[in-house]
Design a protein around this nucleic acid. Structure first.
Lengths: 201, 201
DNA sequence: AATTCAGTACCGACTAGTTGGTATGTAATT
DNA sequence: AATTACATACCAACTAGTCGGTACTGAATT
């Protein structure tokens, strides 16, 4: 394997491997050796790029957050002019994602923070930062939609953003438990109905 | 240390220790030695009661499920006559629970299944069974409330039951990420508002 | 009532394999 | 020549699980 000696490429390979393995097995059960093998790198290479396993966890959370931002920024619904339409576009987009493999649509941050919140502070913080950033992004459209369709409503757009993410995270748990996205899809449909009720008049 | 030589008591101690440790650190990060130490039992004692760590995981899930059933069966809202009132009683009860310590209100099943779904089939199954049983219990009241207040609605009570649990599970993730139940409370308030909209006329 | 004895509950030292991390070497790039 | 980007070999601590042994129990036998 006369691999091109490309630092960034190796780092990315390690982060991608970590993302996939942690999504499937969790943070603790994923070993550094697992990640190295999946990325085709040796231990020495791993610790050249990351000081510790925890630091890799933080970096993986950051990379996942960036990847998510790009995916949603590039999604077709962003072209819609009405903020309410963009919001429903987001929900429908996430429902459509449930058609892929479980390992493709679950959230690395939600998975990691469950295990790490009490024992790996830096990882917890990185997961929180990533999820909060995503909610903030969403909250823009919610706020704009509120001004147009529900200016007098008592709820805050931020809380609606967190509610949406809670439903999605919870739906992932059931998709994993049932090994099928069916329940998750139905939950997201309920979520959609609720959002419709918030913006009707 | 009263050397009570009581099989059931020792087993319960092990299961209680497992429940608390796994809720805090996750399934993989919780070692058999951890559990033994917390329960005041040696390794020999542990493996006298459980064939393997996985089997303990299954037993812990079952015990947690039973404990939950008892708690909700004994909750004050069960005395209400109107099924819709009981449903809102359940939601309010769960919101009130968020006032306790994080480690007291999070769900062992949701925590375990995230890590175990792909790698520990027996644990995944036990978690699924426990969560499904809880939804089924909830769905009774939802069904009765539907017959009274929304007989023509197109949604199924089962799907509403799963939706409720999804919100709750997702709320736990944010409580862990933020180390505060604030967001979780607000999400459950949104959930309550949605349920109100389902049963109004 | 005392003795036997089989079974249960538990102990703690041990093992084979795994863990995150390190120390050192070396070929490629700058 | 110096630095970077890895590879290899290694380690101390930890991992789930084993195994021979011990203490206690309760029922049957004496």
């Amino acid at each position: 394997m006369a691999r091109t000696r490309n630092s960034l490429e190796t780092r990315t390979k390690l982060l991608d491997a970590a993302r996939d393995l942690i999504r499937a097995k969790g943070y603790s059960a994923t070993t550094v050796d697992d990640i190295c093998q999946a990325a085709g790198v040796t231990k020495g290479g791993f610790f050249h790029h990351f000081e510790s396993k925890d630091q890799l966890g933080v970096a993986a959370a950051e990379q996942f957050s960036n990847m998510a931002e790009q995916i949603f920024a590039a999604a077709p619904y962003q072209a819609l002019e009405d903020p309410r339409d963009r919001l429903f576009g987001y929900i429908d987009f996430r429902i459509a994602m449930l058609g892929a493999e479980i390992s493709q649509y679950t959230c690395l941050l939600g998975t990691m923070v469950q295990e790490a919140y009490a024992t790996h502070p830096s990882v917890r913080e990185a997961c929180d930062a990533g999820m909060t950033a995503h909610v903030r992004e969403l909250a823009h459209d919610i706020e704009d939609a509120k001004l147009l369709y529900a200016p007098k409503a008592s709820w805050t757009s931020e809380s609606v953003g967190y509610f949406i993410q809670s439903v999605i995270q919870g739906a992932f748990i059931f998709a994993k438990a049932k090994q099928s996205p069916e329940v998750a899809v139905q939950s997201m449909m309920h979520l959609r109905r609720y959002l419709e009720s918030l913006f009707e008049h």
